[in-house]
């Protein structure tokens, strides 16, 4: 029972990591790092909550989250792809801005409520027949819709990248933008588009924390999860299926931490459990050294250089 609860939660906690890392894989394959990921997670969480609370519809909440992601991504993409400015610096600026904006706009709209405002979060959806399977049923097939979507998105993303013309263009852009340019494709447009798509996915991922799971918004609810999704992208070797594997491991660590904290287990301090996903990221980053890095990653594509 405890075990199935743990795995259920692990699968659930994977959801935003999957969406975020898939977006990051797609955009990094074009040579651009979406360094605004943490900020977009947070703004997505805010927008999702705000949309859902004001409209009473979770769907509208998720749409708002994605639109906010796209908007923020457009700003990031404009500065990094078109103006060729430094990706890490721009990302840091946007993340600081987002950290202030989330709580500020919450205040603007809702003032300072005595109790945190809540919405009813996504309900689980039991898949007919499959959800009745022993153990596997409750773990895998009584999740919410967004979780199913996230898990299906990973193989879909893999197919897009490795089996379609669009994917070929994406991969080529990161590996050698000159080749794409010479083939008559606008490199900047490809990169900008990828930034927008990844930002939409990040927004959705952020909304999972606010309305997919807890049903409320708080400014510290992301707490570096965006960066973990970012890390999963390269721990998974820029492959959606690799990121899926990584996300599962992190989901289990996250779920184990929460389960242990609530079970009154006191052999290790709670703080250690909270730090566990971050420690895991460091360990994985250190151990995973041989990469298949997109060759132009992080380097702005400057055409008229001489």
């Amino acid at each position: 029972m405890i075990l199935s609860g743990l795995f259920f939660r692990a699968i659930q906690m994977c959801t935003p990591l999957l969406l975020g890392s898939l977006g990051e894989v797609l955009v990094e394959r074009t040579g651009v790092m979406n360094m605004a990921i943490e900020g977009i997670f947070l703004l997505g969480a805010w927008a999702g909550f705000t949309g859902a609370y004001l409209s009473g519809s979770l769907l509208i909440g998720f749409v708002c989250a994605m639109l906010t992601g796209v908007l923020t991504g457009a700003l990031y993409g404009w500065i990094t792809v078109y103006l060729k400015q430094h990706q890490i610096v721009t990302g840091v600026a946007l993340n600081i801005l987002a950290a202030g904006l989330g709580i500020y706009l919450y205040r603007v709209l809702f003032g300072v409520p005595l109790l945190p405002l809540t919405v009813e979060s996504l309900k689980p959806f039991a898949v007919p027949v499959l959800s009745d399977l022993p153990f596997i049923g409750p773990v895998l097939f009584r999740q919410n819709v967004l979780t199913y979507i996230a898990f299906l998105a990973m193989p879909a993303g893999w197919w897009l990248l490795f089996r379609t013309r669009t994917g070929l263009i994406l991969r080529s852009t990161g590996a050698n933008p000159e080749a794409v340019d010479a083939a008559g494709i606008n490199v900047e447009r490809v990169q900008f588009g990828a930034v927008l798509v990844s930002s939409a996915l990040n927004g959705l991922a952020g909304a999972f924390y606010s309305i997919g799971y807890l049903g409320l918004f708080s400014n510290d609810m992301i707490g570096g999860r965006g960066w973990i999704a970012f890390a999963l992208c390269f721990l998974g070797n820029w492959n959606p299926l690799g990121a899926l594997l990584g996300a599962l491991i992190f989901g289990i660590a996250d779920a184990a931490a929460i389960t242990l904290q609530t079970s009154g287990f006191s052999l290790v301090p709670n703080e250690f459990l909270i730090a566990l996903p971050y420690i895991l990221t460091i360990v994985a980053t250190v151990l995973r050294t041989q990469f298949n890095v997109p060759a132009s990653l992080g380097t702005p594509y400057i055409k008229e250089s001489k």
């Binding site: 430094h86 610096v89 946007l94 993340n95 600081i96 801005l97 950290a99 202030g100 500020y104």
Partner: peptide, 15 residues
């Protein structure tokens, strides 16, 4: 939180 917002905007404009 306006302070963080101001700092964020200033950084963006520096970029």
């Amino acid at each position: 939180s306006i302070i963080a917002i101001l700092e964020g905007f200033v950084m963006l404009f520096v970029v």
